[in-house]
């Protein structure tokens, strides 16, 4: 008999329910409580009306990068093209660049030459379609006093009218493309991994935004999209790659990927090209005739940041000695 009683709220309190039906008052009270409850819930959800960027069913169902067939990938690239075109009114060329055989990329940075102009920082932002507001930068340049390698002494926010300043040297830090990347190890959903050419990449469509990788990275190389990225339409770089510089969404991680859309097409990274001091060298360490192979053979002192952590960076700082 209780099983068919519709009294499920406080309206039943004290009222008899043995007569098989509910009385008018308890019905009114029950529906009143129910209605005000639903109204309060609806009111609390009101901010959702501002939601503009829905996750499409297509994107919600999308598989992990490594499980996408060639056809799947074409559809995904097509979707990204449509999305970029809609949002930025520009038709991009989105490709999925694959690693080249027999290539392992290495970066060498000459600390004797770097003058701390931060041109690399801005070239990187422009090349890689980073959000401008808030601005996301992959490269952090530290202004360090002579004679110390203690990064706690470094100035991150120096605003000198001219560089270099006497008594200081400058150390740009970006993703070190570790051979043992802690970020890859900790990701709970394998949204970030190391490719055959040594570049650690992120599938922006798979990342759940837990930021465990950001906590794990010893180099402050990873960045989170704390809100919807905003890029002026005329600043979009239309040459895009899936694992590289295509525009990101709110709530996912990103980081330096050695300009995958350039380097896998045989070009230099943007930060290297713009460097006025020639401090940056990049190339294939497996090729004995590459510039980086020459540097590794002929320079004497190299620094891998935080070598003691066992991350084994592919990013080498060196000096003109």
């Amino acid at each position: 008999m209780t099983s068919n009683s519709p009294c499920s709220s406080g309206g039943c309190a004290g009222g008899g329910n043995g007569n098989g039906g509910m009385n008018r008052r308890s019905f009114l009270r029950t529906s009143g409580v129910l209605a005000s409850g639903i109204a309060a819930l609806a009111a609390s959800l009101a901010p959702l009306r501002d939601l503009t960027d829905y996750t499409s069913a297509e994107q919600f169902m999308q598989k992990h990068y490594k499980e996408l067939s060639k056809d799947d990938m074409e559809k995904v690239l097509d979707r990204i093209t449509r999305e970029v075109e809609k949002q930025y009114s520009i038709r991009p060329h989105v490709k999925d660049y694959k690693p080249m055989d027999g290539v392992e990329f290495v970066y060498c940075l000459n600390l004797t030459r770097c003058i701390g102009c931060r041109k690399c920082v801005h070239a990187c932002v422009a090349e890689n379609n980073q959000s401008r507001d808030p601005e996301i930068q992959y490269i952090r340049v530290l202004k360090m006093p002579h004679g110390s390698f203690d990064m706690e002494k470094g100035d991150h926010n120096y605003a000198s009218p001219t560089v270099p300043e006497k008594g200081f040297f400058y150390m740009p830090v970006q993703c070190q493309q570790c051979k043992n990347p802690p970020c890859v190890k900790v990701c709970p959903v394998k949204a970030t991994w190391q490719e055959a050419d040594g570049i650690t990449v992120i599938d922006y469509d798979w990342c759940i935004g837990c930021r465990y990788c950001e906590a794990a990275c010893p180099y402050f190389a990873r960045r989170f999209n704390w809100t919807k990225p905003s890029i002026p339409k005329d600043r979009i770089n239309p040459e895009m790659s899936y694992l590289g510089n295509r525009p990101r969404k709110q709530g996912v991680m990103e980081k330096c990927h050695f300009c995958i859309q350039r380097t896998r097409a045989g070009k230099y990274p943007a930060c290297l090209e713009v460097c006025p001091a020639g401090a940056r060298k990049f190339g294939n360490i497996l090729d004995p005739n590459s510039e980086v192979s020459y540097i590794m053979r002929n320079k004497k002192v190299f620094v891998q940041l935080k070598e003691e952590l066992g991350t084994s960076p592919r990013f080498f700082y060196y000096f003109d000695v």
Partner: peptide, 13 residues
């Protein structure tokens, strides 16, 4: 829930 709805729309910013 109301505060989370705001966060859901505008992000963890």
């Amino acid at each position: 829930i109301n505060a989370y709805a705001k966060q859901f729309v505008h992000g963890l910013m």
